[in-house]
Structure formats: C-alpha cells, structure tokens
Nucleic acid binder design. Structure first.
Lengths: 170, 170
DNA sequence: GGGATTTGGTTGGGCGTCCTACTGTTGGAT
DNA sequence: ATCCAACAGTAGGACGCCCAACCAAATCCC
C-alpha cells in the first residue's frame, strides 16, 4: 500500500518532515538522514552481493588494498590508515580473513612491534571473484547518471575535507 | 573518531584510487566509498554530541518520532517503518530507552500482538536537551552551503527512490 | 468452524565499529 | 645509560545492524 503521492515531498523521512515543520535546520537534518539511509542501502546491497563469496564489504576493501600493494602485504597500522579504521577494527578484520586463509600474519623484519599482513593466493582469487559480483551490481549505487555520481562524490569529498578527514599530519 | 588516525594524503581512499587506475567503474566506487566514510563521520560527530545525554543517534531518532506523534506513542512496527529499521533493531532500541525510563511499553487495546511505545515526561525532556546539543553541531554536517546541502539531499533522495526505499510505507 | 497463512515481537547469533585498558617495543630526552 | 613517552597490536565490552528461528495472535478462506 504505497501512498501514491506523485512526487514532491514524500522523499524525506517522517521524522525529518516533522522537523521541517517545527524545528530549525531541516535541510541539514534531511541531508544527514539521507546519508545515513543511503549508506545503509549500499551496505546491504554490497554485502548481499559479497555474501556468496564469504566476504563483507569491510573485508573486501582490505583484500583490495592488499592486492594492489606492491608486495601484496602491508603492516596493520598502514591498513588502518588507508582504510580509515580503528586499530581494533583492523585486528578484527584480519582475524576473519586469516581464519579463511585469505591472508597471513607475519612479523616485521626490523620492527618487532608491527605485524605484516600478506594476501594469499586464495585471497587474490577470492578478491577477483568478489570484484565481479560487486561490479555487476554497480556497488549498489543506482539511479544516478555519471555526471550526478561525480557531483555526489564532489559534495561528499567537500564534507570530508571540512571534517579534516584528509590533510591530517603525515 | 577520525582524528585518531591521521591520513597522510589524498582526497580519495587509497583503495578507490587504485581502482581508478586499474579497474572499471572507479567513479561509482569513489562515490560509494565517500558515502560510507561520510556516514561514519556524521555518526561519530552526532553520537559524540549525544553521549553526554546518554543517547545514541538511533535512540534519539526514536525519541523525536515519538515526541512528534499525536499521542506521544506508536506501535513498534510503525516505528520500524518510519525509521526504516529491522524489527529486531526496534526491539533493541526500545529496550534501552525503556531501561532509561524514557519510554514505556504498553499493550494495544484491540490487537494483543502489538506493543505500543509511549514516551515519558523524562523522555520528552531528554529529547529536548539532546536537540540543543545536536543542532549546536549542525548534525556534524559541515563544509557545505545551503544550496549544496539541498543538492546533496536531492541526489541521495534520487538514489533512495531508485532503490525502492519509498515505495512501501503503507 | 478450523486449518493455513500472515503479522507483531522477541531471542540468539554473526558481524562491524568504536572505546578503554593492557602488553611489548621503540626511540628520544635527560 | 637509563628512563619514559609514544607507538603497534590485542583483549574485552558496548552498541547497532541484520538474519534465522520462534511463539503468539490475528486474519484468510474453504
């Protein structure tokens, strides 16, 4: 039973709508709500596409990162920086990838604190198969043409920059 | 928090960059990555602002929904529809709100299956205080002017519509 | 009426993220 | 040379989301 209002404003969540009527920064609230919701949609789509391959998006990203690294291996802290993840999240992800024999943990030759993660041959194959699945569904991002996709990326990049997500100290 | 892990350089995640060099739909991947990351940033900002009030964004949204409902109460399934949440998530959220005496659970007068959630006076006050905190930080969304915020909302709404996010609300 | 189906809600489990706290290691400052 | 602050990684816990499975109630339908 969809309410068949042809168009204009149903697109915003009820909560945000009420905000618009009664509270202040409705536009911002609507944008935030939309980001939250779209992220959820994309996460769901992508994870569904990856599930048959035994991967989640987080683990897939980690595999991609390793595949495209020179040696097929990176220290865990570097992975955390690249993927913008908390150290404990990296530990968690690597744990699961290792349990699936997609990566290995090795000690660093000179710094005994650091652990180097190396992708296995099985990991490379898994990543390749998962890439097919994920590109087949366009990463779950649908409804936008190329121009709009670029536009969206630009806006979000601007937010990230304002939040100090990039130019942190080296 | 992002500041825990300084990112050395560039605008786009390393993984997305490499995609751009070597694989196909780089633009889409970049957009998806950005959405994921911005969501994370917003979630972090908002939750930080709400933490002193003992709330998370999910629970705050539930309170807002109840505050602006006619009776200050809604069935759980309706909350799930409005907030686009899985039934188990609603159970979880209401559990915690109830533990804080911000809402009550009551039986539905005619349908004994449904549980009606009602906000308490403490809940209304908590919501009000939290609203101040959250608007003070602009919901964590910074770096965009009003036009760009509207533009962003439009693009994301388009994605949600394409994903069928508005089709079933009954 | 009475069985089959649908619906509302909960439980248990998996996964991801963060936080705090802790062990080792490194390397600079005294 | 030694001490100490910073760093790398992990353990344990909280929270959120989802899925599968389940019970109870309502509804459909023969």
């Amino acid at each position: 039973m969809a309410s068949h209002h042809p168009l204009p404003f149903d697109p915003i969540d009820r909560a945000a709508q009420l905000w618009q009527e009664r509270i202040g920064p409705a536009a911002t609230m609507a944008a935030v709500t939309n980001i939250m919701r779209v992220q959820q949609i994309l996460q769901s789509s992508v994870d569904a596409a990856l599930r048959p391959h035994g991967l989640t998006f987080a683990r897939y990203e980690a595999l991609v990162l390793l595949v495209f690294s020179r040696q097929g291996s990176l220290p865990m802290n570097v992975m955390g920086q690249r993927l913008q993840l908390h150290p404990t999240s990296v530990t968690n992800i690597v744990d699961r990838l290792q349990a699936d024999h997609l990566v290995e943990r090795n000690g660093h030759p000179t710094d005994r604190r650091t652990t180097v993660v190396t992708i296995t041959e099985a990991g490379r194959q898994r990543q390749k198969a998962a890439t097919v699945a994920i590109t087949d569904i366009d990463f779950g991002l649908i409804g936008l043409d190329d121009t709009q996709t670029v536009q969206l990326t630009a806006l979000l990049t601007q937010v990230r920059r304002a939040a100090g997500d990039f130019n942190q100290s080296s």
